[in-house]
């Protein structure tokens, strides 16, 4: 082999392997904090702890989980919470962004004020709402528990139980505490969604909206057929984020309701915390986290699919 050929080969090798060496540190970190824990969780989900040590138990953790009331009820509560939280945050985030997208004075001040909830930790947000609605002693208890305002007996938001379910075991209508949890979570997540949507709105050229207006579209039609389809990618990001934070939120439940009254605000994420760190059933918690990961993935895929369909149909408009 000539020197020239050797140099070419060496150059090729360098060119080929340099990127690999450059990304190796990131890969190693990713392996340590993502891949290894995932693999370990999978292994753990088939094991249980006994005085003699860890033992392989097959699908027993999944089976016991399926039979546990915490899990069964958690599914319904999670669905209710997600629907309420994602819907309200998206709608109010959109409306707020729409208002801020107009020519108004002191826009910066409004954005700053509206952004405050996002920088408050979940656990603090929960505590603040709790102090407002604590029965008998809360700041708003005088109003909420006043029978003349909320007949016949007033509402003790944190302790009142859910009305008789309309659909067998499915927890609907939810307890007042679930409404409060949705409200508090929405309040906290609203700034993030609002900001994303405002950014998306401001990227839309003004002339597109003006042409829609010239073409005879009224306000609602312009929003429905022009603004929303153009904002769809940003909306998808917002909805992704809301689904994931909603599915995995623990802090606000921990400090606001503690999963109660009863188990009426115990979402699957809170059940995971309870089973793992409260009951110390790490095997069972690993099984639940596998299920949660799967559900997260399925919901993201479903959202993607729905929004792609929307995107395609908007392209045909």
């Amino acid at each position: 082999m000539s020197q020239e050929q050797a140099d070419i080969k060496q150059g090729f090798r360098t060119k080929m392997f340099t990127p690999f060496w450059l990304i190796l540190p990131s890969l190693l970190i990713l392996f340590l904090i993502q891949v290894y824990p995932t693999l370990y969780t999978i292994v753990l989900s088939f094991q249980d702890r006994f005085p003699t040590g860890w033992e392989f138990v097959g699908l027993a953790n999944f089976k016991q989980l399926a039979g546990s009331s915490l899990f069964q009820k958690g599914i319904g509560h999670t669905i209710i919470f997600l629907i309420g939280y994602v819907f309200l945050t998206t709608v109010f985030g959109f409306i707020t962004a729409l208002l801020l997208n107009t020519e108004i004075h002191y826009k910066g001040v409004y954005i700053t004020l509206l952004f405050i909830p996002w920088v408050i930790a979940q656990i603090i947000a929960g505590m603040v709402f709790r102090l407002l609605f604590l029965p008998d002693y809360g700041l708003l208890s005088g109003i909420m528990q006043n029978p003349s305002i909320f007949p016949p007996n007033g509402i003790s938001v944190l302790t009142a139980t859910a009305p008789q379910s309309w659909f067998g075991n499915f927890p609907f209508p939810p307890s007042p505490a679930m409404y409060l949890l949705i409200l508090a979570s929405t309040w906290r997540a609203l700034p993030f969604v609002m900001l994303l949507m405002l950014a998306a709105m401001q990227m839309i050229p003004r002339d597109i909206m003006e042409s829609a207006s010239i073409d005879g579209a009224n306000g609602w039609q312009a929003i429905r057929f022009v603004l929303i389809p153009l904002m769809l990618p940003s909306m998808v990001v917002a909805i992704f984020n809301l689904i994931l934070t909603g599915m995995n939120s623990v802090g606000i439940i921990f400090s606001l309701t503690g999963g109660g009254p009863g188990t009426s605000t115990s979402l699957l994420s809170f059940a995971l915390y309870t089973i793992g760190w409260g009951q110390l059933r790490f095997g069972r918690a690993a099984a639940l986290s596998m299920i949660l990961a799967l559900v997260n993935w399925l919901m993201i895929m479903a959202t993607l699919r729905i929004t792609r369909v929307e995107e395609r149909s908007s392209q045909h408009v």
Partner: peptide, 11 residues
């Protein structure tokens, strides 16, 4: 029993 008994948080 007062309603606060059901509020949790040692309240």
């Amino acid at each position: 029993v007062p309603e606060i008994a059901f509020a949790g948080g040692f309240q």
